[in-house]
Nucleic acid binder design. Structure first.
Lengths: 160, 160
DNA sequence: TGGATATAGACAGGTACCTGACCAATATGA
DNA sequence: TCATATTGGTCAGGTACCTGTCTATATCCA
């Protein structure tokens, strides 16, 4: 009796709960991979950073989080030695974020983590179902915002 | 060009973004209904409370949030005069949460808010799509937890 | 060329979740 | 019946988001 999944929970609740699962799973996967010091929000940085350096503002746009949030992630990664910030030669207001040598080593793992969780969920629930869910969410999102500029995100996030 | 919704965002990112939309929409709907002092997490209380009184612990179970979170919501609603807490005659550790007269008046509106947002989203994206999404999330959730006790939630949440 | 506006980033502060430690009352069971 | 969980609730503290304000630089255009 006790494991019927009976009536409909609200959409808000469902979204929150599934999202929580995702975050936890990403965190666990990072831990497992031996990078306990990298946490979900950091994945956003690893996902979108590139060798030419990138501004924090650009990162916020790509990851859809606020400046404060992204700044904090970058600062933490800087403290951990994965990235460094240097002045932007083309804009004296800005600083560019670069991977350090250490960061370059970790990036593939950090980026792969999201995919890994995707994979696990596909194993559990069927990859078609997961794909359909993604599609549905994406389509919904597109409709909710009248038409938002979007951006790739090969896998990204992991974060939130 | 700028409104293509091109490649696939990660599931985590999608979940976060859609959830954010939901929360904002619920908040806006409450505001619109003239209850700007009621905020999304409070909806959990209004959804699950009943005339016989309910323990905070029971509320946390139903809404799937932690004690601290629910306690805070209840305290706020108490301060606003929507609920009151009285000792549980059957358990001297516990206190029961009851709606005040004021709370009884607001409850239907607070509960309806979630449905309202559901309705709006159905208008925008098609009710079939929304229903399918709910179903998919629920099914996924059921699979992620080996098999969890569930609970109704006629509409609930609103909150997160 | 100079004034309005937009942008990069820092800073201050709030919210809705979370965890873990703790106390008091209750239920369990040898 | 008394030690041992378990549970209801509080307290302290952390995280990942959010908002708004502010300064310095950049951009745009009249």
């Amino acid at each position: 009796m006790e494991n019927c999944v009976p009536t409909h929970l609200s959409l808000g609740l469902l979204l929150r709960l599934v999202h929580q699962h995702w975050t936890q799973d990403v965190e666990a996967a990072l831990e497992e991979a031996g990078f306990g010091d990298i946490r979900p929000p950091h994945a956003n940085v690893f996902t979108f950073i590139h060798p030419e350096g990138i501004q924090v503002s650009e990162l916020t746009r790509l990851a859809h989080v606020r400046k404060q949030t992204m700044t904090q992630a970058v600062e933490e990664l800087e403290r951990l030695g994965y990235v460094e910030r240097r002045p932007d030669p083309n804009d004296r207001r800005a600083r560019l974020v670069f991977l350090t040598e250490r960061g370059k080593g970790v990036r593939p793992v950090a980026v792969a983590t999201g995919r890994l969780v995707d994979q696990r969920w596909s194993d559990i629930a069927g990859s078609e179902e997961i794909d359909a869910l993604k599609q549905a969410l994406q389509s919904l999102l597109g409709k909710l915002r009248g038409g938002d500029k979007n951006d790739g995100d090969p896998m990204g996030d992991g974060g939130s």
